Amino acid sequence: MGESRGSRAMFTFLGLWVRPVMNALMAKEWRGQEKLPRDTGIIVCPNHVTEIDPVVIAHLLFNQGIMPHFLAKAALFDVPVIGFILRTIKQVPVERTSAGANRSLEAAREALADGGGIIIYPEGTLTRDPDMWPMKGRTGAARLALQTGAPVVPIAHWGAQEVFPRYAKRFHLFPRKRVRVLVGDPVDLSEFRDAPLTKTTLDGATDRIVDAITDLLAELRGEQPPAERWDPARKHQKLTGRNFEGRQENHDDAAPGGPVPGDVQ
């Protein structure tokens, strides 16, 4: 299988103007690209520090010949032009219902079967950690990995937040910044593969994924991460939105049967 001709053509068209813009915005230092599995669909799990993260990761994957697929809010697919582009390049619509979650899972499986990269942010939203370390993860990526057998590739990046700080209203272009990206080895989830998809299993697999991302980020930053991972629920912070201070109910990561709604900004 593989990406359709229309999907590849649209990716190529987007790349013609997105890549020059990204190269102009910031210098790049990429390491570990050789660790990206080839000829198979992969689940890519990066840290999440700024709204422009998705373009940084998509830039890296596209340059490696891996078509990037994101989880996008279903409402975006109804927007003229944007919806057409999202459907053409097979992005994954996410709905916050049981039936919608099942459709999202099927769309994600199709993208993986086509050899693409599904990018899922295990944190579910921009980190709330004051020092921007990965916070407590949500289980969507682990669930999809265990249900499909697709390899999970952790990626850490640092520097994009200087160009566009978390929840900023404008870019900071001068002086020119540098973004560094480090790709890790696929996460070993073998001990969870044959276990029932219980909360214990999913939490354990999720912790393994976030640990791998954190280790990569510590290497990039040359710093030690905190001993205890930031947990927004324990800090009484909302799970989504820029005004995240204040209590919010802690919902499940996904509706029954689906892995993805908890992983959309």
Rank of each mutant, 00 (worst) to 15 (best):
G2H: 02
E3H: 00
R5F: 15
S7Y: 05
A9Y: 06
M10R: 00
T12K: 10
G15S: 11
W17F: 15
P20M: 08
V21K: 03
M22P: 03
N23L: 09
A27K: 13
A27S: 12
A27G: 14
E29Y: 01
W30E: 12
P37W: 12
P37E: 10
P37R: 11
R38I: 04
D39W: 06
D39T: 05
D39S: 13
I43Y: 09
I43V: 11
P46M: 10
P46V: 13
N47H: 13
N47G: 11
N47W: 10
N47C: 12
H48S: 00
H48P: 01
V49L: 07
V49K: 13
V49C: 11
E51D: 12
I52K: 09
I52F: 13
D53F: 04
V55T: 14
A58K: 02
L61E: 00
F62Q: 15
N63W: 01
G65I: 08
P68D: 03
F70R: 09
A72E: 14
K73D: 07
K73Q: 07
F77P: 05
D78L: 07
V81W: 09
V81F: 14
I82C: 14
F84R: 15
I85G: 10
L86P: 00
V92Q: 02
A99H: 11
G100M: 12
N102H: 09
N102I: 15
L105I: 02
L105T: 01
A108N: 11
E110Y: 00
A113N: 04
G117F: 01
I119W: 09
E123S: 00
L126D: 03
P130G: 05
M132E: 15
M132R: 09
M132L: 14
P134E: 04
M135L: 10
K136H: 10
K136D: 05
R138F: 12
R138Y: 14
A141N: 03
R143P: 00
L144M: 06
Q147Y: 03
V152G: 01
V153N: 02
I155W: 11
A156W: 12
W158F: 08
E162I: 06
V163G: 03
Y167M: 10
K169Y: 07
R170G: 15
R170A: 15
H172K: 13
P175M: 09
K177I: 08
R178L: 02
V181C: 10
P186Q: 09
V187E: 08
L189H: 07
F192R: 07
A195G: 01
A195V: 04
P196W: 10
G204F: 08
D207A: 13
R208G: 02
A212G: 12
L217H: 13
E219K: 15
L220T: 03
G222E: 02
G222I: 03
P225M: 05
P225H: 10
A227M: 12
E228I: 13
W230G: 06
D231V: 06
P232L: 00
H236W: 06
L239D: 04
F244M: 01
F244W: 14
G246K: 08
R247Y: 13
R247V: 07
Q248S: 14
E249C: 01
A254N: 15
A255C: 11
A255I: 05
P256E: 09
G257D: 05
G258W: 02
G258V: 08
P261T: 05
D263F: 06
